[in-house]
Amino acid sequence: MLLWFGDGAHWRGSDGIPTRLGEHLHLSVESVLIGAVIALPIGIVLGHYGRFGNLAISVSNVGRAIPSYGVLVIAFTLFGFGDGPIVLALTALAIPPMVTNSYVALTEVDPDIKEAARGMGYREFAQVLRIELPLAVPLIMAGIRTSAIQVVATATVAALIAGGGLGRYIVDGFAQFDYTKLFAGAVLVALLALATELSLSALERVLVPRGIRLLTARAARRGTAFKTA
């Protein structure tokens, strides 16, 4: 396997590691961003008003039960090959953990704090933006991290139905009985997933205000367990 990584040919061209990594990141980042733009406002609004809690929670439960692999293949049968259908499927899979986590994060803001904010004259919007959201950041970030890891994982499977990404090596390696390639691809995908986890944890540490960090040190571990791929 070391020979595989040492071979310069695997670092160049359209099937080279940098290209495949770029494709993988491109698909993943696009899907998570679109997913966040849709999911976070829904979760935040529902959580702020404390309404439709069952809905916000069951989104995750249902999402967990639907095989991500099937979602990808369905997107393919409807819309054919290409990045578009893949991003559509990945976005759909990215949404549930973000909705659930941001909902829970907002409902868990201490009612006393909200009342104090109102007493200090905060309007509703300012209260959400400046009081509730900073308190909710740890759990919201846990949701984004969960989604991102699932998307990176599912993008691997997407190699089966279309083009790029590091999953190519696994799918092609398996098809060609080239187990070195299969294994090397698996190592790359695993490293990418771990790097995603670590970098988003680091981002979370930067985003959480220092005073809140002490209060909610365990929030990250309370994120919804969500794994579909």
């Binding site: 967990r64 039960a65 095989p67 692999y69 799918v171 791929a229």
Partner: peptide
């Protein structure tokens, strides 16, 4: 349990069986 049932479908990408084989066949 629910997670596992979903993840097993992916095992069929490298021919390990389960209901994912049907999804693969459909593809």
């Amino acid at each position: 349990t629910v997670s596992t049932i979903g993840i097993i479908t992916i095992a069929s990408v490298i021919a390990l069986g389960g209901l994912g084989e049907l999804i693969y066949q459909g593809f």
